[in-house]
Design a protein around this nucleic acid. Structure first.
Lengths: 117, 117
DNA sequence: ATTAGTAGTATACAAAAGGTTAGTAGTAAC
DNA sequence: GTTACTACTAACCTTTTGTATACTACTAAT
């Protein structure tokens, strides 16, 4: 019973990797912001209008985290008034496979739910 | 400025699919439980011992949700004492691509973080 | 002078997620 | 008789996450 399985190591590596991934892109808004910016750079209020239901406070903190994690660049144009532009980075594109796998699985899952009721 | 982009529809479909996926497998423990059961069926306390830090209360609710979503089967052996076995279903295996994409991206992300500091 | 737009921040609150502790009911070993 | 195991559950607490509302400070148009 105090036996440790040999296959456990690879599995736990995968597990922490998955944990890292979900830590960074998990939550209610992160992927929405990334997807909104995939259409092109946007300013703060433009993003807020593009994402239904997000408040300024939450958007602000999401953008900060996304910037910290290297998904988004904040570009300040010192005009009058000051305009701030948010742009996704090439690093955000490395999420392509993840987004595709999630989108595909989510779609088939939704189909399954519809068939079941 | 009140322009609505043509590519918006496909994108929002992907978005809701991703939302559905994260709704079901998101959170701190869901994937851990699934991965723990991938090694083989386990009883309640065995799962709890296999997953470091999960409490009985949380494990219980995670298992209920996983069962509701068709990822896990609950098998009651009416012995003395009553033994309950949890088993993943074939449907849980459809998550293969998602898990792989997440694990791969998470690993490269972690490498990137290590290189940066 | 009022309204609207720029990009947020401050404060307070509500809801959801997760954690801690203790307890149930039964059996079996020491 | 005390401890430990089976599989949980109830009550309560904390942390995280999200919402609502108001506010700053500046400019430009009406």
């Amino acid at each position: 019973m105090s036996y440790v399985e040999p296959a456990g190591k690879e599995c736990s590596v995968a597990l922490t990797s998955i944990g890292d991934a979900l830590y960074v892109i998990g939550g209610k808004w992160k992927l929405r912001v990334i997807l909104a910016l995939r259409e092109g750079s946007k300013r703060f209020n433009e993003i807020q209008r593009a994402i239904d239901g997000i408040s300024a406070r939450v958007l602000s903190s999401e953008l900060k985290e996304l910037e910290m994690n290297g998904f988004v660049t904040r570009i300040v144009h010192t005009q009058i008034p000051v305009v701030v532009e948010y742009q996704i980075t090439p690093y955000a594109d490395t999420l392509g496979n993840v987004l595709q796998a999630l989108a595909e699985w989510g779609a088939t899952h939704r189909d399954k739910l519809r068939r079941e009721r």
